Simulated assay, not measured.
Amino acid sequence: MTSLYAAASGFVILAQEHKLGTNNLQQWITDNIVPLLLLSIAVILLWIGGRGDNAGVARRSVGLVVGLVALGIALSGQASEVGKFFASLIVG
């Protein structure tokens, strides 16, 4: 029973020594998942364009650009500044 307590207290000390967060996961997603997602979208658009559906490619590209803008704002951490800028365009 004492060894169980000692092991549990060791985990508590370990958790207190290291700050826990999601920064490493966010960096991994930014470095690996985002380029893979962009590559797959490009391949899909080329495949659709190869079938001759140019209007479909244009529709999907507009949605893609809007999505990339949202992703860029989210990854930059400047969402509040972008929101203030757009609000200033409307309010003055």
Rank of each mutant, 00 (worst) to 15 (best):
residue 23 N to G: 04
residue 36 L to A: 08
residue 48 I to W: 02
residue 33 I to N: 00
residue 41 I to T: 15
residue 46 L to Y: 07
residue 59 R to F: 00
residue 23 N to T: 08
residue 58 A to Q: 14
residue 31 D to C: 01
residue 57 V to T: 08
residue 24 N to P: 00
residue 49 G to K: 02
residue 32 N to Y: 09
residue 56 G to W: 05
residue 32 N to E: 15
residue 44 I to V: 11
residue 26 Q to M: 07
residue 51 R to P: 00
residue 43 V to D: 06
residue 47 W to M: 10
residue 48 I to C: 02
residue 39 L to G: 12
residue 36 L to I: 02
residue 56 G to P: 10
residue 62 V to S: 13
residue 47 W to P: 00
residue 26 Q to D: 08
residue 42 A to M: 12
residue 45 L to K: 13
residue 38 L to P: 03
residue 62 V to R: 12
residue 47 W to E: 09
residue 46 L to C: 14
residue 33 I to H: 00
residue 25 L to K: 06
residue 34 V to Y: 06
residue 39 L to A: 14
residue 51 R to A: 09
residue 52 G to I: 03
residue 38 L to E: 15
residue 41 I to C: 08
residue 53 D to L: 05
residue 48 I to S: 04
residue 37 L to D: 15
residue 29 I to C: 02
residue 37 L to C: 06
residue 43 V to C: 06
residue 41 I to H: 12
residue 35 P to R: 02
residue 40 S to F: 07
residue 46 L to M: 15
residue 24 N to Y: 05
residue 35 P to M: 01
residue 44 I to S: 05
residue 36 L to F: 04
residue 30 T to A: 12
residue 54 N to C: 01
residue 46 L to N: 12
residue 40 S to K: 04
residue 38 L to G: 05
residue 48 I to P: 05
residue 56 G to E: 13
residue 56 G to S: 15
residue 43 V to F: 11
residue 41 I to P: 02
residue 27 Q to P: 00
residue 41 I to L: 15
residue 30 T to F: 04
residue 55 A to H: 04
residue 27 Q to A: 14
residue 58 A to H: 08
residue 50 G to D: 05
residue 47 W to T: 14
residue 28 W to E: 06
residue 55 A to Q: 14
residue 50 G to T: 01
residue 36 L to D: 08
residue 60 R to Y: 06
residue 25 L to W: 06
residue 27 Q to C: 02
residue 59 R to L: 02
residue 25 L to M: 13
residue 40 S to T: 09
residue 59 R to D: 12
residue 60 R to W: 04
residue 33 I to T: 03
residue 42 A to K: 15
residue 59 R to K: 13
residue 34 V to E: 11
residue 60 R to L: 08
residue 42 A to Y: 04
residue 52 G to D: 13
residue 54 N to I: 08
residue 27 Q to T: 10
residue 56 G to I: 03
residue 30 T to D: 11
residue 25 L to F: 09
residue 59 R to I: 00
residue 47 W to L: 10
residue 37 L to V: 10
residue 24 N to F: 08
residue 33 I to V: 14
residue 57 V to R: 01
residue 26 Q to A: 11
residue 54 N to D: 11
residue 50 G to C: 05
residue 46 L to S: 10
residue 34 V to F: 04
residue 43 V to P: 00
residue 41 I to N: 11
residue 28 W to D: 07
residue 40 S to Q: 10
residue 23 N to P: 00
residue 39 L to D: 15
residue 36 L to P: 00
residue 37 L to R: 08
residue 51 R to N: 06
residue 26 Q to N: 13
residue 33 I to R: 00
residue 23 N to D: 13
residue 51 R to Y: 06
residue 48 I to Y: 03
residue 53 D to K: 03
residue 43 V to L: 13
residue 49 G to A: 11
residue 52 G to V: 02
residue 62 V to A: 15
residue 40 S to R: 03
residue 36 L to R: 04
residue 38 L to Q: 15
residue 28 W to T: 12
residue 31 D to N: 12
residue 35 P to F: 01
residue 54 N to Y: 05
residue 34 V to K: 01
residue 28 W to M: 07
residue 34 V to A: 04
residue 56 G to N: 11
residue 31 D to T: 10
residue 62 V to I: 15
residue 37 L to P: 00
residue 42 A to T: 10
residue 40 S to V: 07
